[in-house]
Design a protein around this nucleic acid. Structure first.
Lengths: 114, 114
DNA sequence: CAGAATCCCCCTCGATACTG
DNA sequence: CAGTATCGAGGGGGATTCTG
């Protein structure tokens, strides 16, 4: 029981309002600059983008590459280690999709049943 | 890209301070009464236990069985449908465990490297 | 361009008291 | 026994402004 309790910490890493969409962007597009991420996620603001990226970086999911030049240039990408997450995300995604179906079917049955 | 975005909703269902431990308890022990869950999770209070259980119930993960008698008796269990979650939880748990290892190893290397 | 700093709101969660 | 009702603190998240 005790040792079967590490999935809370797994959730912690994925939780955060913008982490899913950031991860999706980086997995789909590969390396992206800060400004590219901003454009790809119009509703996010800089503070949130920075914050969520730093949290992902601190867990070694995202790699941050700084180019010392003016104007500044910073590139983000999924780290080698972070790529191991894609399997997890795939499972979550599949279940999420099937769950949406399940709930839709359930609502329908409930309505017609009454 | 668009259709590959359902894992946020999957996370929503698992998120909540006490949902992981509640699910673990029910998966491990099968059917449990409200008071048994309270005893098993000493730090939770009634309000939170009720609330999180209701959210899980509304997603058809947990089944709630009410016995109309005095004193009241209510039993909770993982629903048939909810059992499909265990695979997801297993994957999350495995990744969470290996991630803990990874971060520990990384910290060690960092410390001895500097 | 890529942020850091500040202020503020809201929502989750917790403590406590009450009820059928 | 198995909840509800109410109040309040704390933290995540957002808008805005400033900086190298």
């Amino acid at each position: 029981m005790r040792e079967y309790c590490k999935f809370e910490s797994a959730l912690d890493i994925l939780v955060g309002k913008w982490k899913p969409v950031i991860l999706l962007q980086l997995m789909y597009n590969g390396t992206m600059r800060f400004s590219e991420l901003q454009k790809a996620i119009p509703d996010i603001n800089k503070k949130m983008l920075t914050q969520q990226l730093r949290e992902l970086e601190s867990n070694d999911i995202v790699h941050r590459e700084v180019y010392n030049q003016i104007p500044p240039k910073v590139e983000y990408s999924i780290s080698e280690y972070g790529k191991g997450l894609s399997k997890v995300l795939q499972v979550l995604n599949d279940w999420g999709a099937s769950h949406a179906e399940h709930m839709k079917a359930r609502d329908g049955a409930e309505r017609s049943g009454k």
